[in-house]
Write a protein that binds this DNA or RNA. Structure first.
Lengths: 346, 346
DNA sequence: CCCTCCCCTGGAAACGATTCCATGCGCTTT
DNA sequence: AAAGCGCATGGAATCGTTTCCAGGGGAGGG
């Protein structure tokens, strides 16, 4: 009754009156086993509640059958969707997924990576935050790495799956300019001195192509955190009552823009148009619903996992896999009307 | 240069000129090692990029150093928050977390559980969906299980961490009744024939205590999925133009209620008040912001993990751990005014 | 000065699986 | 009928650790 330990392959072999090699063959599917014998083994296993141990197998095969996934934050809707994509793909390929959140901290990311290497995962998918050196070291020791959603400067040789952020921002800018907007605020630039991100560059480039001058005062930096986002949005909208549209480079920034606009009693889109990158669930629940660029988070995760586990051969060739974005027009952006004085801002 | 394989403890031992037992002692921290020897071992390990293999260690110690986490859906904000809590706690205890999503499918859940047992996880945390039998079997073979957010009927012996859903719903009902509402719709009842959930029971009980009759026609069932939620909300609001408030038993149902109300041109809260269980991010972004009951998702995850890994002794005693909820009043519920005919519904 | 005790240390046996290799048997082929 | 082939099977080595056990050597006390 009281089984002292979980049954091992040896117990099953003894119970079925066969050698352990035969039991192994039955469970791993390799080699050939007589039908009667197989049945006897399975019966014994069922009787003993036997489950092959992944540790024993992994030791021998030198693969753990799992992959690691490092995201900045699992509660972020974009990340969550990406995780779901990875899980979906991993499931079809029979691998499990060790997930952890680095919260944008390079040290933490390195720690997690270390742990994953120790676990001998078959590969790692990451939205990297940290130091290129850590990743270079890991790539040397560990199996294989795929970056998702973003890359690390200096590590272009690591295969990656990205959204076409530049294209998304471009379509957004074209849309806003098409509506007549000229003074467009950009929330989410890089800190002064840091290299501008893909989205900021796309914003500047597209405005340039459309012959709209870039007002540096309207391009405001913000870390991807709620407080920083709110501060940035509040700063922009209070400082410059003349902006007619705000382009938020992420959903946190979009959220901040919406809240600040409400705080300042600005009507959307009558007083200010708002649009953002990342079509998260609440965009549709907003009033008015928010125009956004949808990035295929789930597909990114799925493709990254495929790239990691299935397309090992094709990997790394031809640069990053880029998936298209889609402009979802809702009601938060309006055509520019004759300038109307805003209610008492400042 | 080209290392053919990742270094093993044997390689390090050879390089450092010591026995493998000594290397093991250095890395596992057990036993005593001379300072000079330790330094030599560490140097050799660094040189060879050695990382102890969790597979070898796990085989010997019969613990993998990881736990499993089964949620219905990682993209659900509540689940995501709970996952974050588990990750935070697991991190402090030095365990990794294998996450998977069962999507409410018992078969899938059983599969995942099987896989986790195979991986020899040190324990499993689950928001269970499935058959009690599977869990009973797993609990026998595998280490230990903790349920989070919900329990399975017939498995009360499994330790669990829950939110005080009943209390949350009660406070919501009291709030709505206090505002004067009498015809309150409840979205998210159990299907006809199924046992009513905690929230539905709390809804009925509280109304009873407040001497408000329960109109069965206003208690509508819905599976926790977007389409079902929308159908339920649309059905309720179209069928009964006389409901003055809607209590949604989950954020998906709340979302549906908001969208349907907008669709029907009902003003919130003038024509209908809306409140829901689960204070997700968009509740504040809504216009008007939604009154909701906040459930401590992150704490639930954290406590569940603690219970699983740290409080093994205390586990199972004294029934489920119940964490308090909090009523967050925003602008979506108003005092009942004189009945006013609604614009052309039906 | 010798005996003890303790601290380091190395050898070797697990842990639970996979897999190579050898063996025995029944069947076809010449 | 003998040889040969292939399938089914068991034994044993191996994967990378931990850990028990025993041995060697230095220090301190009698």
């Amino acid at each position: 009754m009281a089984e002292r330990r979980t049954a091992t392959i040896k117990d099953v072999a003894a119970a079925a009156g066969v050698g352990i090699a035969t039991v192994s063959r039955v469970f791993s599917g390799t080699g050939s086993v007589g039908a009667a014998t197989r049945e006897r083994v399975l019966a014994a296993a069922r009787e003993l509640d036997y489950r092959p141990s992944a540790l024993g197998r992994g030791l021998k095969t030198r693969r753990s059958g799992g992959i690691g996934l490092i995201v900045p934050d699992v509660t972020d809707p974009f990340c969550a969707e990406l995780v779901a994509g990875v899980l979906a793909c991993a499931r079809t390929l029979g691998e499990h997924v060790i997930v952890d959140a680095a919260h944008g901290d390079p040290a933490r990311e390195a720690e997690i990576l270390d742990r994953l290497v120790e676990q001998r995962v078959d590969g790692v998918i990451a939205l990297p935050a940290g130091r290129a050196a850590d990743w270079r070291a890991a790539a040397r020791v560990c199996s294989s790495v795929v970056f998702a959603d973003r890359v690390l400067p200096g590590l272009e040789e690591v295969p990656s799956v990205l959204a076409d952020d530049a294209g998304g921002v471009r379509s957004l800018v074209e849309y806003l300019v098409g509506l007549g907007h000229r003074r467009i605020g950009f929330l989410g630039a890089a800190a002064a001195g840091a290299a501008p991100g893909v989205r900021e560059r796309a914003f500047r480039d597209t405005l340039g192509q459309l012959r709209v001058p870039v007002d540096e005062d309207l391009v405001v930096a913000a870390r991807p955190a709620r407080d920083a986002a709110y501060a940035a949005a509040a700063g922009l909208l209070q400082r410059r009552a003349d902006v007619t549209a705000v382009l938020a480079a992420g959903h946190l920034l979009g959220e901040a823009a919406v809240l600040v606009a409400r705080e300042l009693d600005l009507r959307v889109p009558a007083d200010v148009s708002i649009a953002m990158v990342d079509d998260v669930a609440w965009a549709e629940l907003c009033d008015p619903p928010l125009t956004a660029v949808a990035r295929p988070a789930r597909d990114i995760g799925y493709r990254a996992c495929e790239l990691l586990l299935r397309d090992r051969a094709r990997r790394g060739r031809g640069g990053p896999v880029v998936l298209p974005t889609e402009l979802v027009v809702r009601g938060s952006c309006g055509a520019l009307r004759a300038a109307r004085p805003r209610p008492g801002v400042r």
